[in-house]
Amino acid sequence: MTTSITKLSEIPKGSQFIIKGFENQDSEYAEKLLKMGFVEGTVVERTSADISDPMVFSLRHCRVALRKKEAAEILVKTDM
């Protein structure tokens, strides 16, 4: 396996990654996002909207804005 893990806040515009998990799986923040579908294995894309903080992501056919610092809580990988 040659998967590399990065933070969601680091991914470039228009790129697609797969959610791995959270820095802190038990945080309130993680709990809320999990319920919104940020579960392991979900494909997440940074949309072409180039506002840099908050950043706009798309997953499960929804667009969600997150702060850069808070998006750094979410870990993503390149493939399954």
Partner: peptide
């Protein structure tokens, strides 16, 4: 608090 905002179509 943190900021999570759904952006509707």
């Amino acid at each position: 608090s943190y900021f999570v905002m759904d952006l509707p179509l």
